[in-house]
Computed example of a mutant assay.
Amino acid sequence: MTFHRSRFSVLTVGLVGLGLWATTSLAAEFDLSPEQPTRVHAEKSDKAIAAIPKDYKFVEPGVLTIGINPWDPPVATYATDAKAVVGTDPDLAVLLAETLGLKLNLVAVAWEDWPLGLSSGKFDAVISNVTVTEERKEKFDFSTYRQDVLGFYVKKDSPITSIKEPKDVAGLKIITGAGTNQEKILLEWDRENVAAGLKPVEVQYYDDSAASQLAIKSGRADAEFNPNATLAYGAAVNGGTKLVGVVSGGWPRTAEIAVATRKGSGLADPVTVAINELIARGKYGEVLKKWSLTEEAIAKSATNPLGLPKPNS
C-alpha cells in the first residue's frame, strides 16, 4: 500500500519499559514524494572530512554508498514513484554524505542481505535501523544515531489495554520480526512465562506490514511487537490499531540504533564526528522533527558503545 500526504493526530506514548514517559506528535505532515522539497541539507564539515583515513577507499570515489532497507515509513520506505527511498534514515544518509563532502548513492537491500553486502564491500555503510549488539560488533563498527524503541499494538477494539511485562503476553498470538531484537525479547518473555507455569506465546511472522495489519484486524493475531515508529505511523494512517505498551529495544537494557561500517575500515569515527556535528548544528533534530521521531533522539553519537549482549551471555 502506498501512502500519500496525510495528516496525523497526536499520539501519547508511555515508555513503560524504562519508567520513562514521552509524547510523540504525529500531527506533522508526512511527505512521501520522491522530490522531498522539505528535505534538510547540511554544509560539509572540515573536521569530519579530516577524520576520514587517507587510505580509505570508497566503493566509488567521491561517493558515499549506503545500503538501506525500504521496510516501512517513517524510517525508510519507497516514495510514491516506487523508486526513490524516503524517510528518516534516507534523510540522515543525505546529511552524512553532505557533511563528509561526498555525493550519495543509496542502494536498496533486503534486511537479511545487508551484513554480507557490507562485509563484501558493496556498501561503505548501512543505515537501516540496525541496533548495536556485541555479536554484530565482532564484524562491524557502529556510530549511534537513535534510540531503539519498540511498541505493542492491538486492534482498536481489543480488550487488551496494557502490555508492560512478560506475564502480559502469556497465551497471546503475537506478530514480530524474525531475527530481530524484538523477537529475542518476546522469546525471553515467553521463556520466563513458561518457566513460571503460564501459557506460551504463539509467535507469528509476516513478510510485510499489510499482512500484519490484516492478521490483527481479522483476529488471527492478538498483537504486534515491532519498532514503535512504524507501528505508530500505521495506527495513525489506518486508525485500526492502538498502542498498549512500549519497551526499550534492549530490554532490560537501553538499546541504540547506529550506522554500520566494516570492522576496522576507519570510517566509523568520521561518521560519528559527522553525526555529532549535525546534532550540534540542529540539522539532526530537524530531521527527527520532520518525521515525528524527536523522542527517539540521542544527545551524542558514540563509536562502538556497549551493545546488547550475545545470546545466553
Rank of each mutant, 00 (worst) to 15 (best):
A235S: 15
A178W: 01
V203G: 05
G266D: 06
G249E: 10
P74C: 04
K283P: 04
W114T: 11
G266A: 07
P252Y: 09
A27L: 07
G19A: 06
A196G: 03
A125F: 09
S45A: 13
N181E: 10
L293A: 13
L20F: 08
Q213H: 13
A178S: 10
P73C: 01
P37Q: 06
K199I: 13
E165W: 01
K263D: 11
N105M: 11
L106T: 13
S265T: 11
T144Q: 00
K139W: 09
S120I: 02
P37T: 05
A297Q: 10
K54W: 07
K167E: 15
I66P: 11
F140E: 01
P34K: 00
L106H: 14
G179D: 05
V126H: 02
P70M: 00
H4F: 14
L214V: 02
A299Y: 08
A93Q: 12
K137P: 01
D269A: 12
V259Q: 03
G17R: 03
D157N: 10
A97G: 07
L308D: 14
E60C: 04
S143P: 15
Y153H: 10
E192L: 08
T88M: 07
V75H: 09
S119D: 02
L26H: 04
T80M: 02
V246G: 06
D269H: 07
A229M: 04
P159M: 10
A97I: 05
A97S: 09
G239I: 03
L187E: 15
K139L: 09
K283T: 09
N312Y: 10
L20H: 06
K155T: 00
I160G: 12
D168K: 09
H41S: 11
A280Y: 04
T2V: 08
L198T: 12
A235L: 11
W251Q: 02
I66R: 06
A221D: 15
D157L: 05
T144S: 08
D190Q: 04
V273Y: 07
T23M: 06
G179Y: 04
G14S: 13
L293H: 07
V40R: 00
A280N: 12
I257H: 00
A51R: 08
T144A: 00
K155E: 01
I160T: 14
S45Y: 12
I49D: 00
D46P: 04
T131D: 01
A108M: 06
K184D: 09
G266L: 04
E134N: 10
N304G: 03
K54E: 15
G219N: 05
D168M: 05
K137D: 05
G250Q: 02
K290V: 08
E29W: 05
T180F: 13
K155P: 01
G117W: 03
P166E: 04
L11V: 14
G62K: 12
T230Y: 09
L267T: 00
I174E: 05
E112M: 14
D141T: 09
A42C: 02
L92V: 02
D91L: 09
A268Q: 07
N69R: 11
S128Y: 01
A210H: 13
I275A: 05
I298S: 06
I216N: 02
A178M: 03
E183Y: 10
V85L: 12
D124Q: 07
T38E: 15
G177P: 00
L92I: 03
L100A: 00
V203P: 15
L18P: 00
